[in-house]
Design a protein around this nucleic acid. Structure first.
Lengths: 354, 354
DNA sequence: TCCCGGATAGAAAGCGCTTGCTACGGCTGT
DNA sequence: ACAGCCGTAGCAAGCGCTTTCTATCCGGGA
């Protein structure tokens, strides 16, 4: 059989209550007693029964981090940073206490899975939940998520949004850290415009996501401000946030409008695919066509030529979200913070041929 | 207060036992009764209390997936695949049943964190644990991990290793899926040798990891077979599995031996850094120097020139590990399977200048 | 008509831990 | 010398669910 608290208590010749208190360190216990208990724990190789403990204490040390695609470094970086802050193991804190089990859950971008994970975390009475990445804009789903989050919140779970716009109906959450996707998108296109580009293709992400929409809106804002209107639909192709989609969409774009001098991709991964397509068509980057991405993932600087993109402080944002989830940092005023995006001009963009 | 089983029972005018049975679907309940219960559950928005349920049933639906670096697609891909198989939400199974909470835990490559996560999962009485990635070769740590896994195993947790060599002392695990890192490493170097390279630099991973050692051994095997011995130490530089390390190590390599005609990197990410270094030194790939990687991550085919590398079926392996963890697939004979690595020759390698 | 077995439902005993409250010395203050 | 405290430890009552065992209701065979 597995060892229980009672076994430890017996061996240390104290009551179970005392063992519990030693383990939790939240009640005065004489040093000598503590010593004895700790030795017994060691001798017996005792491991606390998590479920029992959570049940009795009505709390749990689970913290969930939801991501859309765990194979995408965009999410990996945020999740890793958050997990580090949440501490899980080895958070430096001497011993017990902040020891949380930070786990990441991969929704694969599916609204249903997102909801199911939230329910599962609710079941487990998670201490906190961090949702990363853009939300799906289906009203029904948004309502469902909001409701779920509200329920989680008033069951005591701390909810933090990271890289995700605030909930429409406000404050069911501890904090929302939103990236300035629109501003970044605008500045990126302004950069292209200032180089002299006029026919700019846009490879957008999946239609119904906030991230997609905001980046695209920023782009169009800039185009409109430059007086370039009318071609929006023709020069935009939607697709998933992956390399393949960037490749295909760019080919399509080039077919629709052979005169494009620049392609803006919804993110760096897509930009990689776009670059491949451009090259496969026998065109040079940036001499014939400029290519730009978004996110500034680590590999972007190593692309050839280095990718012009918009840097999002993913690590910092993830870490901050982690801290907020742990209550180690005070939320921004109003619970909402917008995180700036920084334009990174590199070799993949240049003035168009004359 | 939160809704409990008893509340649902009251509303459905049945006993708590019946509600439990409806929810678990493991006991005959009259259709009409079931209906009534389900409606009550819905009306009250009832969510099962996970800890209580786990405590009473002495089981849990948590499945842990340990990874070394969540921001690295190498792990992301495996973890994602495993998570999909484990089902977590939306595994297609009509309703309850296989509904497991698959979570990934990021050890950051630290042995202590690995151990702590295992303990935490043990606390939670995890249904299964999947360990991915190479192990650290410190004997003390290996012993500790083995002991932990043994304990987990006989507490009923299914343990699966994925991309990790079998435990030295044998069968504490359901199955071990090991990549043929040695064979892959050997074939990669043989390819270079067959192109005519003789002075080949090797940018290795961190010293004490099995993955690092096996790949390096494969490389040296090939070199030795070609009669190239003596320069091993001078032509090998160790460092972490990241881009930066590849960059620095390659610079160092070029300093030590300006005559190298090829650089083999421990993995694709490192190869990216290596390529950057080569270019920054004003050398062309592959005309002046060939560069090769390992893993065949998605971005490798988009590198310029496309990266010659060794393909590891990460997705398939992860999925299989997930299935094994769920008991959906029978383990390979002896519990050990070696997964083949396939050489992918692309543009980054070519014969050396004459 | 009576009895028995199958199909359902309920009662109740925990699962292993936490925690409010009580108990018990030995000190201090008067 | 006695009352009152502080510092510790134990008692015991749950936390919300699962599951064994028992009770009940029905229909059918004898």
């Amino acid at each position: 059989m597995t060892v229980t608290l009672a076994d430890v208590a017996a061996r240390a010749r104290v009551s179970p209550a005392t063992v519990s208190r030693v383990l939790n360190g939240n009640y005065p216990v004489a040093a000598s007693t503590r010593e004895r208990v700790l030795r017994a724990v060691d001798d017996l190789d005792y491991v606390l029964n998590g479920p029992a403990s959570s049940l009795a204490a009505a709390t749990s040390d689970l913290v969930g981090i939801l991501v859309n695609d765990i194979a995408d470094p965009f999410f990996g970086i945020m999740a890793g940073a958050a997990q580090t802050e949440i501490g899980g193991p080895g958070d430096g804190s001497g011993r017990a206490g902040g020891e949380k089990l930070a786990v990441v859950c991969n929704t694969g971008g599916s609204p249903e899975r997102e909801l199911t994970y939230l329910t599962l975390l609710q079941r487990q009475r998670a201490a906190a939940v961090v949702l990363t990445g853009g939300a799906v804009e289906d009203p029904a789903h948004q309502a469902a998520v909001s409701a779920k989050l509200a329920k989680l919140a008033d069951a005591g779970t701390r909810v933090v949004l990271c890289g995700r716009p605030p909930l429409p109906d406000g404050e069911a959450v501890v904090a929302a850290l939103a990236f300035d996707n629109r501003g970044g998108g605008r500045r990126l296109t302004e950069h292209l415009l200032s180089l002299g580009h006029r026919r700019i293709g846009y490879v957008a992400g999946p239609l119904e996501r906030t991230t997609t929409r905001h980046r695209l809106e920023g782009h169009r804002e800039a185009m409109r401000a430059a007086g370039l209107v009318g071609d929006e639909e023709r020069l935009t192709v939607h697709g998933p946030y992956d390399r393949r989609s960037g490749y295909d969409a760019t080919l399509e774009l080039l077919r629709r409008e052979p005169e494009v001098t620049a392609v803006v991709a919804a993110n760096d991964t897509v930009a990689l695919g776009a670059s491949a397509a451009v090259r496969d068509r026998g065109l040079r980057i940036p001499e014939d066509i400029s290519v730009a991405g978004f996110d500034d993932l680590p590999f972007s600087v190593d692309a050839v030529p280095a990718l012009t993109t918009v840097r999002l402080p993913l690590f910092e944002a993830g870490a901050r979200a982690g801290r907020l989830a742990m209550g180690k940092e005070t939320p921004p005023p109003g619970g909402i913070a917008t995180i700036a995006a920084e334009l990174m001009v590199r070799g993949s963009t240049a003035p168009p041929r004359v």
